[in-house]
């Protein structure tokens, strides 16, 4: 082995290294992967078509703000107290990409209607020429930027015949900290503590049919001290409870009991219970959107849109009112509700 060989070999290796370094192979996302129409539309039995909301995919890194962050804490990007440990960037989503110039039609049977754009990505039947009917099938078509997305839904029938066995609930005025609640069933409330069951309201059906439901309360009063209290001087306020979904499909009980509608019935108010009968695929969607155990943060919800994302659904509502009244030594305190 001559030194010539060794030197040439090592020199060759170094030159090869230089050649490899000239190749820059790193790539980063910079915009669209591919676009898609996102439809959010629901039809409500007995009402005109008012809720068709259209978006298209917003581009990260383009429609967003990128800031330097460290360690999950908003901080000075030039300050890194841990000597160059993992750095990170944040991308804050600033706005949705609404679709303003789509051609939207809704049809049932042989009849077809074109919806008008009313702003903020919303399309509506502004002249109310189409009232949604339970039991009918509707098809929605969206044409935008060379893309065509469509879906269809059959409007379910409402539950109907709702009644309540006692239309007023009472709260005991007992200091300012503790409050106790009655429920529908009677006055036997323990003095200490608040049973969890009394904080929830169950909707029962004596003869359940196979259906999917979407329940919530709206309540009206003038004492609510939430955000509205701060930003508005309105006398009465309407606030919705958490929505819950329930299904009678899989129950084996003779009396169907919905998922509890979690609501603190602390506020003397007039309450409106709304029960929507919804489509099975919409139930599936809501279940996955609510239940985090079904997905990680990167999973996208199921869709019934062909060539797109989102959902086109329909529902039929029914409702009933009841009041919660505040009592002071057995005397009803008036004018605390919205009735």
């Amino acid at each position: 082995m001559k030194m010539t060989t060794v030197k040439t070999g090592i020199g060759g290796m170094l030159l090869c290294a230089a050649a490899m370094l000239s190749c820059n192979t790193g790539t980063e996302p910079a915009g669209y992967d591919k676009d898609a129409i996102i439809i959010q539309a629901s039809l409500t039995a007995g009402q005109p078509v008012t809720y068709v909301y259209l978006l298209h995919l917003a581009k990260l890194y383009v429609d967003t703000v990128v800031k330097a962050r460290w360690n999950g804490w908003p901080t000075d990007p030039n300050y890194d107290p841990n000597n160059g440990r993992d750095s990170s960037d944040t991308i804050t989503l600033t706005r949705d990409s609404i679709i303003e110039d789509a051609e939207v039609t809704i049809s049932t049977g042989d009849t077809s209607y074109t919806l008008d754009y009313v702003g903020y990505g919303m399309y509506s039947d502004t002249i109310r020429k189409l009232v949604v009917t339970a039991g009918k099938t509707y098809r929605l078509d969206v044409h935008y930027n060379g893309m065509h997305a469509w879906a269809q839904t059959t409007v379910p029938f409402p539950e109907g015949g709702l009644s309540i066995n006692r239309d007023t609930l009472y709260t005991l005025k007992d200091g300012e900290v503790k409050m106790k609640y009655y429920d529908f069933s009677g006055p036997d409330i323990p003095d200490d503590g608040i049973p969890d069951s009394l904080q929830s309201l169950f909707v029962t059906f004596s003869k359940p049919r196979k259906a999917f439901y979407y329940n919530y309360y709206s309540f009206y009063n003038n004492t609510y001290s939430g955000l509205n209290y701060w930003i508005s001087n309105a006398k009465y306020y309407s606030t919705d409870s958490m929505k819950v979904i329930s299904s009678s499909y899989w129950t084996k009980k003779s009396v169907f009991e919905s998922c509890p509608v979690v609501l603190s019935l602390a506020q003397p108010a007039r309450y409106k219970l709304l029960i929507y009968t919804i489509t099975p695929d919409f139930y599936d969607l809501l279940e996955k959107m609510v239940d985090t155990t079904y997905q990680d943060q990167w999973s996208e919800p199921p869709t019934n849109i062909n060539n797109g994302l989102g959902f086109f659904t329909s529902m039929s509502p029914d409702s009933i009112f009841f009041d919660v009244v505040e009592m002071d030594n057995g005397i009803e305190i008036p004018d605390k509700t919205g009735k």
Binding site: L21, C23, N24, T25, G26, T27, E28, P29, G31, Y32, D33, D35, A36, I38, Q40, S42, Y51, Y53, L55, H56, L57, A58, K59, L60, Y61, L93, D96, S97, D240, M242, K243, L286, M289, Q297, W298, E300, P301, L309, G310, F311, T313
Partner: peptide, 30 residues
């Protein structure tokens, strides 16, 4: 790479879904 928001149809809050790129579509620096 992309995102969209669903508002759960009059639900209490919106939810943003992030659209992920094709699997292993990008490369780290060499």
């Amino acid at each position: 790479v992309e995102f969209f928001t669903l508002n759960q149809f009059s639900g209490p809050d919106n939810r943003t879904y992030v659209h992920v790129s094709d699997k292993n579509a990008y490369r780290l620096p060499e």
